[in-house]
Each structure stands twice: as C-alpha cells, then as structure tokens.
Design a protein around this nucleic acid. Structure first.
Length: 588
RNA sequence: UGGGGCUUCGCCAAGCUGGUUAAGGCACCGGAUUUUGAUUCCGGCAUACCCAGGUUCGAAUCCUGGAGCCCCAGCCA
C-alpha cells in the first residue's frame, strides 16, 4: 500500500504544511501515555518526558453506539492517511461518555472495521472513559477559577432561558452562586447525593452570545447508568462538548478533524482548552479542531436512525447484510479495503457539501478487483447448449488464464463436453440489431474452447426455450494452431453441464431505487429497491467449489463476486455479487 | 444585520500571498488494441470560476453589495 504518488492537495494538508513549516509542534512532549501537563514533567517511569516524535497526531473518535458505515470510512481514511503521510500517529479513541447508548459489542465491531480497512493505531487505542478522573479534576478547577457553576434548574427551565436562535438567553438564578457553593454541590453530585437531572454543571461564558453553544453549555450531568468500561464508578458523566477537547489535549492531538456540524462548537473547544492551559493543566500548543464536509452518497442512507429502522423492521438481513452501507455489510458484499481507500482519495476533502454518486464507490471497487481478482466462469441464468457433432461420452480439457493481464497467475483446466450450460441471454432466436452472440446460423467462440455454429433451439409447449443446438468446429480449439482460423465477433462463456457446481449465488443491487431515499418527507421504506437481492442457483465451473470464504473472483462477463464469509462451507461456497462489470451493451 | 459555513466543467476538486493555456480524477464522447460488448491505450471535454458593481496594465483570486444552499436552540455525539 506504499503510495509514492503525491497526494492531492486539500485545505487540511495546507494547514498541516503551514504548521509544520512554522515548527509549531516541535516542543510537544509525550510520555507515551495520554495525560495532563502535570504528568509530563516526569513520565510514569520517573524519567523526563520526551519530545513527541510523532510529527502530527490525529484521531478517529467513534462513539461505540453503532456500526461504522461508509461515511466513517471517509473519516478513517482521512485521519489515518494523514498520519501515515506525515510520519505521525493516529489514535483510535472511543468517545464513550454516554453509558446509556454504548456497548462493548460496538467497540469490538469498530476495532474490526478499522483493522479491516487496513489501518494500524499501534499502541494508541484509547477510551475517553479512562480520562474521567482528569476531566473531573479539570471541572473542579473550572469551578474554582470562576469558569463553571452548578445550575439547579430543570432541563425545561434551562431550555426556556437559553433563548432562541435570534434572541439571547437569560442568566440562570444559580449563575451567581459562589465558587465554594458550586464546588460543594459538584462534589455531592459526584458522591451520588442527588437524583439524575437534579443539577448540572455549566461552563460560565456568555448567555447573550449569538452562538448558542456559548450560552453556558452543560458540561456534566448526573446519570446513573452502568458504563461498559467504568462500570458503576461514576454517576455523573461529562458531555461530549466538554470531554472531546480534553480528550484531544490529553492525547497530544495536533489536528482534531471532525465534520462541519461541529463548526459552531469550535469557539467553545478553544475557550475550554485555553482556560485549562492557563491553569497549567494542559500543555501548549493546544490541539486545533478542523471541520470538513461529511460524505453524502446517492442511493444510500447513512443516518443511524434510518439504518436502525431497516434492521429492526427486517427490511434487510441484519447490520451485515451486504446491501447495508455498513463496513461489516461492505465486507460481506465483497467490497475491498483498497477500494474504500481509493474512493476516499478520489472524492477528496473539502468544506463544500458534496453529493457523491454511488457509482463512484462502485467504480473504485471494480477498479481494484479488476486488478486483483482471478477470473472464473459462472453461468447465472443457465440454458443447455447441445453440441450435435460432439461425441456423447467424450470430454476434454480446455485451459483458461486466471487473469488476462497477469499471465504469472497461471492457467487452470476447465472440462468440456457435449452438453454445456450457457447464459440464456447469450442466445436470441431473432437477434436485435447489433447483437453478435448466438442466433441461428451465427458462429461464436465458446470462450477458451471451440467456435460453434448455432443450428437452432428446442422449445417446450409454452414456447419456452429449453435448449440451444449447435455444431462445433474441432480445429478451432483455443490454444491450438487452428484457433484463429475462423474469425468470430461473439465470445460467450459456458460450463460443462456434467461437471458444473450448482451453487447459491446472491445477486445484490442497490438497496434504494431513488437517488435521495426518504427525501421530500417520504418514508425511506417506500424508496426501497424491491430487486436489491435475488437468490439464484447458478452453474459454476468446478474449480469454484474450492473457493475459500472471502475469496473474490471476477465471474467473466458478469462482475465481481465473493465467497460469503458467513454462509460458505468448505466445499460448498455461496457467492455474493459485489458489483457488476461495466456494460456498454445492455446500457443502450 | 442571531451565529457559523459553503458556492470553480455532468460529479468531485486544485488554485485563492492577483499575471497559469483555470491542475487532476470520475463520468461522458471519439478512435486503437482485445478470445470478457470488460480491461488497457490514445485523443476530446470550463474565454469560464453564484450574480452585480468596483480597484488594477491585469481578478476565480482584492473590495462593496446581493442571491442561493447547509448547520446550530439535547442534561446526544
């Protein structure tokens, strides 16, 4: 994955370049562990802290409350990619400050997903919840320095006095409470003396600010819930707004990259860290928050609420359904990590709201698998082809290259006999204009086999074609001197009927049939593509019987398929279609 | 005049410390190769940068005014 080509410029790289040119981070120290400035004077081992050797530090900070999706892939590639390019480090950090929503199951799946995408956080796997003690101490400092107070209004009262988008808010009657009184109350909150919601700790900033986030945001709330990591140690938990900047600072993050909706939060981010640095609690330079536009993909929904709906209403087969835009789903679908990385590179990073067409992602997957997937033959909609002049009991081997552009991947034998399966759509009794496959009187090559001439077809009482007939030209076998003695335009694939492996194949297509599912107030359910999943029994070349779970192939003239990692059994793989081949014929 | 942000080819996106023929990718359209109607290759593809004024020898880049779109009133993240 060593990318030597210059990366496309973007505004974040420009910021980093400027920071590095100014030597902004040269004196940062890092003891090897996250911690406040006070812990940096000497490291935990008792020796002086070292200069941070990571040129930059970024982080991917998911909340473990759901499965990662395509949108996260963009952020992961961005953060880890930047760290790689700049000889920095990227931390995987669980932003687990709300125990009511978070579960171990999700942290496990997130770890798997990031690994699967090909990234490595080394020793830098962290949990916000491990910083709760420091966050608490910092909060006491804020109270003592007059920058925070305990508010005893109800949630409703707080909302009412916060004002509106166009009018400032009014101060809480508790805003003028003395630091000593707030501190005492805060300690009692920690000790569990109050019911949930009875009090809240608020930063004291500016109730009249045009930016609502600066109107004394709540930073700690009482919440009795068992935390997946800290258990029942705490009954009050920090809010994201307060916790996130501190997490970044404790971890020496240089560039804290997040999505646009947090832009209004940045003034608070800076305010908080500045106050704490003033108090000697954090080292400077402080991390800086940088916002970029999140991924919007056509034909896809990425909102957690809607994804949950799909799963709960059983519109899909779970979170890892190959049609789901989750990373676990993508993996089962046969999408590749390289494809995602290519996609992230291709769409770039900017601040303008952009809609990327799903076909771009599909194209990236196609590109990558075109380079890497071995070719195999599969007949998805089989109809018999009977070779009239081929002896009944005979059979012979033909040879097929595993990759047309990579001879080093070798060849494999495929058996040939009198009765073959071919694709129903490769025969036409009356061919449309421009059609150059099988039709009465026409010759085509059976790919890697012989040239055959179509003699007609057989139908049942209802007019349904049950078999196609042809004669073969024995001297035209692929790889023999006479192979090219007969020129043909058409080239179709086939599988020997008596040697074929009949397998379950799932043909997946886009989950939604419209560009913006759920737009205009519609229920996303109404926009579901009824043909997003078709399960068929296909006739595959015998070699495919040995496919290993998660092995990917190009089924020639069809697309890219993967042996399902869950349902494949040894000797009986089941295949999922990841994406079709580009088709400029049926597109017409 | 609540606050913040965005607007460059069909889709992304460089460029924005003023002077380039306005990068690059994807898509698309030609043509060549091809035992995948795939791939690959070669060629084409913005006198134009949301609009209107202004400054300047010169503006996508600076100034003024305007338009459109997105985000914010959780004790969610």
């Amino acid at each position: 994955m060593a990318d030597t080509d210059a990366k496309a410029s973007n505004f974040i790289r420009n910021i980093i370049d400027a920071d590095l040119a100014a030597n902004k981070f040269a004196q940062r120290r890092w003891s090897g562990q996250p911690g406040p400035a006070t812990s940096l004077k000497v490291s935990h081992g008792g020796t002086p802290s070292e200069i941070d050797t990571a040129k930059i530090r970024t982080r991917f900070p998911p909340e473990p409350n759901g499965y990662l999706h395509y949108g996260h892939a963009k952020s992961i590639c961005l953060n880890f990619g930047l760290a790689l390019d700049y000889a920095g480090a990227c931390h995987l950090r669980f932003d687990d400050t709300n125990p009511e929503k978070e579960e171990q199951e999700y942290v496990d799946s997130i770890v798997d997903a990031v690994k699967w995408l090909g990234f490595d956080w080394g020793p830098n796997l962290y949990y916000a919840s491990n910083y709760f003690d420091w966050m608490y101490e910092f909060a006491e400092y804020l109270i003592q320095s007059g920058n925070a107070y305990v508010d005893s209004q109800s949630a409703d009262e707080m909302r009412a006095s916060r004002g509106t988008l166009t009018e400032g808010g009014k101060a809480s009657p508790y805003r003028s409470r003395s630091a000593a009184e707030s501190l005492a109350l805060f300690r009692r909150m920690k000790a569990g003396e109050f019911a949930d919601g009875a009090h809240v700790l608020r930063a004291k900033i500016d109730m009249a600010s045009g930016n609502i986030n600066l109107r004394d945001p709540a930073i700690y709330r009482i919440k009795r819930a068992t935390h997946h990591n800290t258990g029942d140690k705490w009954c009050l938990y920090p809010m994201y707004t307060y916790a996130h900047p501190i997490e970044d600072a404790l971890e020496n993050i240089t560039h804290s990259i997040c999505t646009l909706e947090f832009e209004d939060q940045r003034p608070f981010y800076d305010w908080l860290l500045d106050k704490l640095a003033e108090g000697g609690l954090l080292q400077r330079p402080l991390p800086q928050q940088i916002e970029f536009a999140r991924l919007n993909l056509s034909y896809v929904v990425l909102s957690k609420r809607k994804l949950i709906q799909l799963v709960e209403e059983k519109r899909v087969d779970g979170w890892d359904d190959p049609r789901m835009p989750t990373l676990v789903g993508a993996r089962r679908r046969g999408f590749t990590p390289e494809g995602f990385r290519r996609f992230a590179e291709m769409i770039g990073v900017a601040k303008a709201d952009a809609w990327i067409d799903m076909s771009v992602l599909e194209g990236c997957m196609r590109d990558h698998m075109n380079e890497t997937a071995e070719r195999r033959i599969a007949v998805l909609d089989p109809v018999k082809l009977v070779i009239e002049n081929y002896p009944e009991e005979d059979e012979e081997l033909c040879e097929a290259p595993n990759h047309p552009q990579k001879p080093e991947l070798g060849k494999r034998p495929i058996p040939f006999s009198k009765e073959l399966w071919i694709e129903r759509e490769d025969f036409a009794e009356t061919p449309p204009k421009g059609y150059f496959r099988l039709f009465p009187g026409n010759t085509v090559r059976l790919r890697y086999g012989f040239v055959v001439k179509c003699t007609g077809c057989v139908k049942d009482d209802t007019g349904h074609i049950t078999a196609v007939h042809c004669i073969y030209l024995p001297e035209t076998k692929s790889g023999t001197p006479g192979a090219d003695s007969v020129k043909v335009k058409g080239n179709i694939h086939w599988v020997s009927a008596k040697h074929a492996y009949a397998a379950e194949v799932r043909l997946y297509d886009r989950l939604f049939k419209v560009e913006s599912p759920g737009a205009g107030g519609r229920d996303v359910i109404d926009d579901l593509n009824p043909e997003s999943k078709r399960v068929i029994t296909a006739q595959l070349e015998p070699a495919l019987k040995d496919a290993q779970a998660e092995e990917r192939f190009q089924f020639e003239r069809h697309g890219y398929f993967v042996a399902d990692r869950i349902d494949s059994k040894s000797g009986t793989p089941v295949f999922n279609r990841a994406v079709t081949l580009k088709d400029s014929w049926t597109a017409k």
